[in-house]
Design a protein around this nucleic acid. Structure first.
Lengths: 181, 181
DNA sequence: GTCTATATACAGATAGAC
DNA sequence: GTCTATCTGTATATAGAC
């Protein structure tokens, strides 16, 4: 919590952006250093290896998840609506961390995969009392996953198939009609 | 259609498996050649570059999508149920192709991203007449995306959060109650 | 059609100057 | 804390033998 050095955060931001925008192969230490405006050696002072860089991203995700679960529990529109709405918040720090960590997990990083699974567990635990049964919970979780997946595979200038604005409100209403306690 | 050389298909299978199991960074030409049981030079005779390898995978996806859309249109349980059920068919050639191509699309391969979008378009077009409105169609598509996403991020020995067997039947029934014409 | 050998480039990581 | 220089391994791709 003792706020970390600025450069460290800038490096993490750059690495996250590269993972999201250009994929894991493009997110090299070299490219990350350039994007963050430091040299390779400078980066490696903060993160001694590529693995350490990945671990830093996972740690950031865990912090954001903790805050998100707290906010979800207290949301005035209820956890289900809050959960679905925030599953498609493009550019949101949590959403960016999730997409970046899911890219890292695809290379076989077990800690990254575990973090994603634990996040899902926390969400299900919180949402379970607000859904009629296990099937309804499955539905809510899968719609959220679908929103992330679409955020994750979108192309540069291409219009996204994810419902926005009024369409998102309608979707939330439909899911709540189908699943809410 | 004039059936392609066996070695070519084996190379494509190996590349697909590496992308799914170890991610794009591990799916190098060298590793693919080894997994397919040919030398690097042998592989490069069939696919002259990494891009050609990616293009081969996209072509395979397009063929499988065409066949899938036909099967969906004729499914006795109706297209919606067929669509959801086959969205989580682990090990199915189409599902494997989708996951592999989605990995490739993350490195910025535009043809791969386009193929995925066109696939989604074909599915929506076919499903639209079988759903009550645009929101219901969104719901069906997002549940399917969620099923793929979970297939895609699963870990080695880890139990998957995707509904199977009876849970899948229950999910399909719930979605159909909520969305069907 | 498949191989080995090789050229070229780039990735990750270390050493040591400032 | 940040840099440059450098080592080592590995990736893509080509050339040419079989």
């Amino acid at each position: 919590m003792s706020r970390p050095p600025l450069a460290r955060e800038r490096v993490l931001d750059a690495y996250e952006a590269l993972l999201i925008d250009e994929g894991e192969r493009a997110a090299t230490i070299d490219a990350t250093a350039r994007a963050a405006g430091v040299s390779k050696g400078g980066l490696l002072y903060h993160f001694g290896s590529r693995e350490a860089l990945e671990a830093g991203l996972v740690a950031r995700l865990n912090e954001l998840v903790t805050a998100d679960v707290e906010a979800m529990a207290e949301a005035t529109e209820g956890p289900v609506a809050y959960f679905l709405r925030t599953s498609a918040m493009d550019g949101d720090p949590l959403d960016r961390a999730i997409i970046a960590v899911s890219r890292v997990s695809q290379s076989g990083n077990a800690a990254a995969a575990d973090a994603l699974h634990e996040m899902r567990e926390k969400w299900s635990t919180l949402l379970r009392p607000h859904t009629t049964d296990a099937t309804a919970l499955d539905l809510v979780m899968l719609v959220s996953d679908g929103l992330y997946f679409n955020n994750a595979i979108r192309e540069g200038g291409m219009a996204r198939p994810v419902p926005r604005g009024g369409a998102m409100d309608a979707l939330i209403a439909l899911v709540e009609r189908s699943t809410r306690m």
